[in-house]
Design a protein around this nucleic acid. Structure first.
Length: 414
RNA sequence: GCGGGUGUAGCUCAGUCGGUUAGAGCGCUAGAUUGUGGAUCUAGAGGCCGUGGGUUCAAUCCCCAUCACUCGCCCCA
């Protein structure tokens, strides 16, 4: 144990941040439910090969960002760097191909060994959505619509824009890739060092290089749209038609690519300019080859992931946390009755806190500090008369009500 | 992994052209107010000036390293 600080790139989640986090997750659960998704919670670690094979051996995530270790039994395991691979594994090992289509939502921590920055952590949290077994592009429209609804509900729809592209099916993508490699190879001398390396590993990635020198070359590069076979072109047209139909605005960005190898056809990102260099808040696409590649029965898939911390940072007017009631016993003789009153109200569904110590002044001060909505004062006088005083902490108004009627009189504070 | 910036009280930040007792505001604790919070006043607690090394009679301040945060590259949620 070298220190008592959290490990680099990890954070304790509490207070305001925890509330934002929870708000994002709850909104997500709500919309996932409305769209007919059910929850799937997979383990946060898997055998290393689950990620290695699916994300692509050459992707940065696999090459240098995974938390991989050998457990006590000698198994190579990895903390999940994303959700899709684990869900695909669960789909196969659970024999779910029998029950397609499957619509799953998930959320929780993911792990990548990266250099921390604003909006970039080593342990961060994602919300995740997957549709398995639906080849129709209706599913593409559906998952994008859900994301759009969620962002609107969170009040950040106008801070984000939807960018859309197609990578084509494997035939189209292969053909385009070849043309692209030829093109960039011919101009290799003008390429940045980063992009030269990408030429070998993942030539599509050159398209979203930020290097000023590359931009010019990219501007003149062949376009994906010109190399789509008719199936791929029709598929993409259908996605756009669907989005148009339900009023979702987007910008086609034919330089939008994906970092992970399993994507085909539709690729999309909801991006923002409010978070500095980390612009993507929700990103995803279609991965029709993934399940088969992992050894399952050929099953198309589409999904997305969203960064909870990034979304949380964009929230402005989050509803405030609910305010509790506070029971204030006055004098030792009131303790027991206050205790039973507190429990009774909790049973009735109220949020109730009762301080542990202190005189009335201290307890009232504490009630104020935790943002209590009202204080219930219970002392000798009240007990003698079988009543309790309810003090509204916003207005300062105080009313006296019979103990038997307290719950009813408190309904206005629910 | 690469480059730039920053690290002083719980928080936001002053400060010392290197000099012996390091400050403010907010917050916290207690009291004024032993059956009533938010305001005010008073008092108090709380800092190895991120960590390790170097230079110096002397370092919180200068130098080096390291760690953390931060901005950009990279990568991506």
């Amino acid at each position: 144990m070298t220190s008592l600080k959290p490990v680099r790139g990890t954070h304790d989640l509490l207070g305001e941040d925890a509330w934002r986090h929870r708000h994002v997750v709850e909104a997500f659960r709500d919309f996932a439910g409305r769209y007919g998704f059910s929850e799937l919670a997979t383990p946060i670690f898997e055998f290393t090969e689950v990620f290695q094979r699916t994300l692509g051996e050459t992707s940065d995530v696999v090459q240098k960002e995974m938390y991989t270790f050998e457990d006590r039994g000698g198994e190579r395991v990895t903390l999940r760097p994303e959700f899709t691979a684990g869900i695909a594994r669960a789909f196969i090992s659970g024999g779910m191909a029998q029950n397609v289509p499957c619509k799953f939502f998930s959320h929780g921590p993911v792990f990548r060994y990266e250099r921390p920055q604003k909006g970039r952590l080593r342990q961060f949290h994602q919300i995740n959505l997957e549709v398995l077994g639906v080849p129709e592009n209706q599913a593409d429209v559906e998952v994008i619509a859900l994301a759009s609804d969620l962002l609107a509900d969170l009040g950040i729809g106008d801070k984000t824009t939807l960018e859309l592209n197609t990578l084509g099916d494997s035939e189209s993508r292969g053909a385009y890739r070849k043309v692209l490699v030829d093109y960039f190879s011919a101009h290799k001398g003008d390429l940045s060092d980063d992009s030269k390396a990408r030429l070998e590993r993942n030539p599509l990635r050159i398209l979203d290089s930020k290097d000023a020198g590359d931009r010019d070359l990219i501007e003149r590069a062949p376009r994906m749209a010109d190399y789509l076979n008719s199936v791929s072109a029709d598929f993409f047209a259908g996605v756009r038609e669907g989005l148009d139909r339900i009023g979702i605005t987007y910008a086609v960005n034919d330089r939008l690519v994906r970092g992970l190898d399993y994507y085909t056809h539709t690729a999309f990102e909801f991006t923002t300019t409010f978070l500095g260099a980390q612009g993507a808040v929700i990103a995803g696409g279609r991965y029709d080859g993934l399940i088969e590649q992992m050894g399952g029965k050929s099953t198309p898939g589409i999904g997305w992931a969203g960064g909870i911390e990034r979304l949380g940072m964009l929230l402005e007017d989050i509803p405030p946390p609910p305010r509790p009631l506070v029971v204030v016993p006055i004098g030792d003789g009131a303790q027991m009755l206050a205790l039973s009153l507190t429990q009774e109200l909790r049973s009735a569904g109220f949020r109730v806190d009762m301080g542990y110590r202190g005189n009335v002044g201290k307890r009232m001060k504490r009630a104020d500090r935790i943002g209590a909505r009202a204080a219930l004062l219970l002392g000798e006088d009240e007990i003698g008369q079988g009543v309790v005083k309810i003090r509204d902490l916003d207005s300062g108004d105080e009313i006296t009500v019979p103990l038997t009627d307290v719950a009813n009189r408190l309904n206005m504070y629910r």
